[in-house]
Design a protein around this nucleic acid. Structure first.
Lengths: 209, 209
DNA sequence: CCAAGAGCGTAACATTTGTGACAGTGACAC
DNA sequence: GTGTCACTGTCACAAATGTTACGCTCTTGG
């Protein structure tokens, strides 16, 4: 539990008094890789702060297709959940654990009072919004201004960055889903990236060079 | 000036006392159609609330290409400007007057105190965030899950909705820019929409049926 | 060892989108 | 009226992406 306090203090910029309050009110949640945290169906009235592990945020369309939007790493929170909760609207996105992760869940009901009481909390919340807007704009950028080969490479680099590993353990099929295209296309483009010596392929694993 | 008060009271859900304060502090700004309000270069430290007219928000890439994201109508504010200002980061987007518009500009410096003091202001700000996230997600949706013909039709419907007119006065070229494609492609698809009897084309004008 | 299935490579072809080129037509200035 | 220019229509072709199909190679469970 001391770990959690440390992470909050170090990565969120929240003042000690508030961290104490957060610790006394929230609850710890552990999720296994692949677990769905937020989905358009499940409303959810708690806000998650990522302590360890990695979450991914996806956009899902009614027919079940999806696109990867961005990763949420340690110390970050899901800004879109916040607004969703406040407005009581249903989420238009999905949050899934990419790795086994631990979260600190804060009930929505405290949001308003913390926003009024703590300057650092306002900073934290508005900072999250800014970061998420940036990520969404980047996602749009990717799709609108770049071809699939570049989108793919970006995705691999993002994943490397988020996981902190040069080895990406994903199948072509999984990557295809994340980019909303087909497995064949990904295989084709990965082969090309291999020729350009940007990656190396192994079974169930891609190595970023 | 009485108009401005009315609009703020009716469309933003802000309490009378705050509206009064906003009126005493902000300033009126009129912009002509085509005028650029926010761009990645110009930082800007005021937040605009749209009183009348119509603004559009675009994403711009370094090479000068751009994509339309969404419209801002009366009573709405530019959520992304807010976070940008607070964080002092440079905008990754561009706001342009689509029609002659009048805005009420609020200096950033009052944001923090209003957020702490007024519940209705918090509602307003968080509500804006929610709406913008939704719009951005829709934009992503459009691009990722739909072909150009559907994107085009959506864009026309959005424009009809935002301007409140069935007649859209835009050239094929302008539409092509908004969707980041070429004029030829738009002409082709408009012809198709005409065949499907969804629109009628006139010179410099498209009529939505 | 063998069977079954998941993951990958590759080819052939369809569809969508991008690009260059050129012609017709209306608006406007002269 | 005439020339110019912006706007649109249309063709031909290129490039990117989607789709179907099939074969190969691992891994796993029996």
């Amino acid at each position: 539990m001391g770990d959690t306090v440390d992470i909050l203090l170090k990565n969120t910029g929240l003042e000690p008094k508030l961290v104490e309050e957060i610790m006394s009110i929230g609850r710890l949640k552990k999720v296994k890789s692949g677990h769905v945290l937020v989905s358009p169906d499940s409303p959810g009235n708690e806000i998650p702060i990522v302590m360890s592990g990695l979450l991914k945020v996806l956009r899902q369309d009614p027919n079940g297709q999806e696109v990867f939007l961005y990763y949420l790493e340690g110390g970050e929170t899901c800004a879109m959940s916040i607004t969703c909760c406040i407005e009581g609207r249903k989420a238009l996105f999905k949050v899934v654990a990419e790795e086994d992760s631990t979260l600190w869940m804060i009930p929505m009901s405290f949001m308003d009072s913390w926003v009024t009481k703590y300057q650092t909390f306002r900073r934290f919340v508005f900072g999250s919004y800014q970061t998420r807007f940036d990520e969404l704009l980047n996602a749009i950028d990717s799709v609108v201004f770049h071809n699939m080969d570049e989108r793919l490479y970006r995705y691999l680099l993002d994943t490397k960055q988020a996981t902190g590993s040069f080895e990406i353990r994903k199948t072509h099929e999984q990557i295809a889903n994340a980019l909303n295209t087909s497995r064949v296309v990904i295989s084709r483009l990965l082969k090309q990236l291999e020729k350009e010596e940007k990656i190396e392929q192994h079974r169930n694993m891609i190595e970023i060079l």
